[in-house]
Design a protein around this nucleic acid. Structure first.
Lengths: 228, 228
DNA sequence: GAGAAAACGGAACAGTTGGTCCGGATGTGG
DNA sequence: CCACATCCGGACCAACTGTTCCGTTTTCTC
């Protein structure tokens, strides 16, 4: 379909494309998704128009840059799911994925975004989800993961730790591992004392679940149940 | 000092101020800090100029609105610190503070912000910090909190859970309690298996602490230690 | 080389945002 | 009832974003 008459790419075009990719990769990794296309162009030593000649939109550029990172994350999940020890695989996947996020601000932003605009991010999530389910199921069978743990909780742990990394990576890049360990210790079989709330897909996991269970220590003015 | 010739505030001025406060409170609570001053003015039925007549800047407005919320948070911490059972106080403080954040998007944004621009937020943090330290110390003495827990970890738990709330409050407003419980279970004395990383104020809690401990499951291209 | 096709660069555009200004409406005190 | 201080409203400004456009430059082919 696309075999017809691909015009032989010009030398300068190829060079600029490479420069753009490298500049964007560096900038997005260190500065996060908020960097401007003007910044990318400037760093690459080209004009903004050139950026749009190679990438039709900003999301296109992001896709091109983070393709291998996301593939790497999928590989990590695959390897972890293949581990015969479910618990070990799960812990390794968490450590690996958070390690990647700790070293790439842009990747962190992509993973956390609730409504990702890049198709590759969506694809990556769809690929990883069943792998995580495998790990969770295996670890539960083997009795090392607390039985009320849900596969969807893994995503939220990643979101939570990403926020911690975001707040601390400049001053203590490795601090997040401390709280990852805290989460992991809470995931272990036998560490829970009370029945937790319902997992995500439970229909009645909504509203203020504490209502009637006990009154808060102090009145809470912002409480939707009280206000107005 | 301000007793001299306070001009008797005009009726419409007082009315508009009240309208602005109510509109801003509602909007910031439901929409988060990203709402525009134009939105606030429109909702209050006034013009933007009127907003700036009453509040010199956006931060001023935020301070005025969230003053009682922040005071409430401080009260919660005070009450929790007064609990004779350190563990119970700590858990209640976490539950209360997260409950407040779950019901107010704007408050959540203020608490999470790494560089708060509102003076009241800074003041609130300074007041709460020693109270949290009291709870942590007490719970450690009583042997219910794992001894390697640090008072600064409380802040990060709040940041982490705020991110979870941010991602889920629209679809499952109470889901965050599930992960709060996960964290709490990880905080219990006796739940840890390995020595965790150093707390925040440790001088050597930086760099990739995993280096040399073991190689990642898959190569990580974004790793700063590998790249370039 | 010369000429055409392709790529380049950055000014310009549209859409945000927080914040300013001033003519005109509105209360208030005498 | 009226003069005057005060307040109101929204047009306006500056700064920022992603994106488009077009005159100019570079490269490739003959």
């Amino acid at each position: 379909m696309t075999t017809a008459a691909s015009p032989p790419t010009r030398k300068d075009a190829a060079r600029n494309r490479a420069r753009l990719l490298e500049a964007a990769e560096q900038l997005y990794a260190t500065e996060g998704l908020s960097v401007t296309l003007k910044d990318v162009a400037h760093r690459a030593g080209v004009g903004v128009g050139t950026v749009y000649r190679h990438f039709s939109t900003k999301d296109d550029l992001l896709d091109a840059i983070f393709a291998d990172r996301l593939a790497c994350a999928t590989d990590s999940a695959r390897a972890a799911a293949a581990d015969s020890d479910g618990w070990r695989g799960l812990v390794r996947y968490l450590e690996d994925s958070m390690h990647m996020q700790a070293n790439n601000c842009g990747l962190r932003g992509l993973v956390v975004s609730s409504a990702p605009s890049c198709p590759l991010v969506i694809k990556s999530r769809e690929e990883i989800a069943p792998l995580v389910q495998q790990m969770v199921a295996k670890a539960k069978e083997q009795g090392t993961l607390r039985p009320d743990f849900d596969a969807t909780d893994v995503t939220f742990i990643q979101v939570a730790l990403a926020a911690i990394i975001e707040a601390t990576w400049q001053t203590s890049p490795g601090l997040y591992r401390r709280h990852l360990r805290l989460f992991i210790d809470g995931m272990r079989a036998g560490s829970h004392r009370e029945p937790p709330a319902e997992p995500l897909d439970s229909p009645n996991a909504k509203g203020s679940p504490r209502a009637g269970s006990r009154s808060p220590t102090v009145p809470i003015p912002g409480d939707q149940a009280n206000s107005s």
